[in-house]
């Protein structure tokens, strides 16, 4: 960490203004979605581990994936995984092909386009059974 990073404020309002713009919003979303997906991963390993308690216990437990509220959480999970994956891919591309940094704005636009095309139909298909 460079020394001039130490005095930065991390309040939400400041976070949106710090250096500002789309890049900063991408950074904040990358961090929030990363922590969210990690939290889900830890829970998910525990729920699958509970299969060692036998068929009845495990089948009972799976309501955490079939309940209506679980479907809404799953859409959040899809949002987090998909956003983090595409934004991370952009970061990796820009790191390994440094000239791509000059096109960061266009790459973010491309990334968000792919995100919307993948996320919106999948999220709709996940939520649609709730309205039947």
């Amino acid at each position: 960490m460079s020394s001039n990073d130490n005095d930065r404020s991390t309040s939400p309002g400041h976070m949106l203004r710090y250096r500002g713009g789309l890049g900063m919003a991408m950074w904040a979303l990358h961090r929030v979605t990363g922590l969210g997906v990690l939290a889900f991963l830890l829970l998910h390993v525990v729920d699958i581990f509970l299969i060692t308690f036998g068929e009845e216990v495990f089948n009972e437990l799976l309501v955490i994936y079939t309940a209506p509220w679980a479907r809404v959480m799953e859409v959040f999970l899809l949002f987090g995984v998909l956003f983090h994956a595409l934004n991370g891919l952009r970061i990796a591309v820009q790191d390994f092909w440094p000239t791509a940094w000059l096109e960061e704005g266009r790459l973010i636009a491309l990334q968000l386009t792919v995100f919307v095309i993948a996320f919106v139909p999948a999220a709709w298909l996940m939520l649609e059974p709730l309205f039947e």
Binding site: S2, L22, G23, G88
Partner: peptide
């Protein structure tokens, strides 16, 4: 920790 980048990620150490 290496310098953080706007838009996410860090410079290669």
């Amino acid at each position: 920790m290496s310098e953080r980048r706007v838009g996410g990620g860090h410079r290669r150490p």
